[in-house]
């Protein structure tokens, strides 16, 4: 799979990652004010994974996410203002303000939904991949799950079904090292989550999740494989989250300088900027312009979301059942 990307593709990848980072870092600040209902689980640090995979997908391809889903939504093209309003519980949110952070879904973009149930996205994409197959379409379905979910039976069942039925399904295990507060090196019985693919007759690879180009290349190979009818695969993306499991997590299970060191040496945005400017493919000015534009976008999204109305009691039962013609 080629890593030769055009300037437009490179700029788009940077904008996606930068938008996710700015979105999450702003939420980190805003959540502390107490204005946001429910919980939020921030994706900051993991941007290269969502951007690298989604660069190969189109709107008709489906993804399912988990509780840490903001990055997947943004990379799949869900409207940033609509997401912010949803997280604030406002009627203008992409789910009418009734889903919140852990249930953002936008079927027009192929985003089947974030999901508060660990491992529950995997059977959903097995289903969407089966639907694509039955319809004779070459659409691909991708599930993002964590190292904790990699131990869940639902994930194994979905992997088995995807393999048995040769579905265009890609299992992306974002291994950030911790399932809530439990280290994956303690709780995952095999040495690499990618090794579990062998048990289901599909290939599995382990990829550096701090490097957009590594993820992009591996995901490209997996998508090409799935789209051409060669079946499912598993990609283990090794990365870290910059914040706690949820906002408010004291993170006593992490070494004091763990995140600081990774931010300084491995950060995906920093690496992307250094690599593309040194190679002469992008200029610092182009990237700075994106930074400015993204900051404005997030500021606008927060301002509007805060001012928007909440759903009313009359909205309670709308969007619950499909209205059949």
């Amino acid at each position: 799979m080629s890593t030769q990307l055009s300037s437009e593709q490179l700029l788009h990848a940077y904008e996606v990652m930068r938008t996710i980072r700015a979105f999450e870092e702003r939420l980190h600040v805003e959540f502390a004010t107490g204005e946001i209902p429910g919980f939020v689980h921030l994706y900051a640090g993991e941007e290269a994974s969502a951007a690298g995979v989604m660069a190969h997908l189109r709107d008709s391809d489906c993804i399912a996410s988990n509780h840490r889903g903001h990055g997947h939504c943004i990379a799949k093209g869900v409207d940033v203002y609509g997401m912010m309003a949803e997280i604030y519980g406002k009627k203008t949110g992409v789910c009418g303000g009734k889903g919140g952070s852990m249930h953002i879904a936008d079927l027009s973009k192929g985003m089947l939904g974030a999901n508060g149930i660990v491992g529950a996205g995997a059977p959903l994409v097995a289903g969407s991949a089966l639907a694509a197959k039955l319809k004779g379409r070459d659409d691909v379905s991708v599930v993002f799950f964590g190292d904790g979910a990699s131990n869940e039976g639902a994930v194994f069942e979905a992997m088995n079904m995807a393999s048995v039925m040769n579905l265009a399904c890609i299992f992306v295990a974002e291994n950030n090292g911790y399932a809530e507060a439990t280290a994956s090196k303690w709780s995952v019985a095999c040495d690499h989550i990618a090794d579990r693919a062998a048990g289901f007759g599909m290939p599995g690879v382990t990829i550096d999740g701090y490097d957009f180009f590594a993820v992009h290349e591996a995901a490209g190979a997996a998508v090409e494989r799935a789209r051409s009818g060669q079946g499912p695969s598993l990609i283990e993306v090794k990365l870290t989250r910059y914040y706690g499991h949820f906002e408010g997590d004291a993170q006593t299970y992490r070494a004091p300088d763990e995140v600081k060191n990774l931010r300084e040496t491995r950060d995906c945005l920093l690496q992307f900027r250094n690599k593309t400017t040194r190679a002469g493919l992008l200029s610092a000015a182009q990237l700075d312009a994106i930074d400015g534009r993204v900051d404005g976008l997030i500021e606008d999204a927060v301002r509007r979301a805060k001012a928007d109305p909440k759903p009313q009691p009359a909205d309670l039962l709308s969007d619950v059942y499909v209205s059949y013609p």
């Binding site: 990618a194 690879v205 990829i207």
Partner: peptide, 15 residues
């Protein structure tokens, strides 16, 4: 465990 599991038919040598 590298990409060649996807692009070729390379095998796995487990721990």
């Amino acid at each position: 465990r590298d990409l060649r599991r996807l692009t070729a038919n390379a095998g796995l040598y487990s721990s």
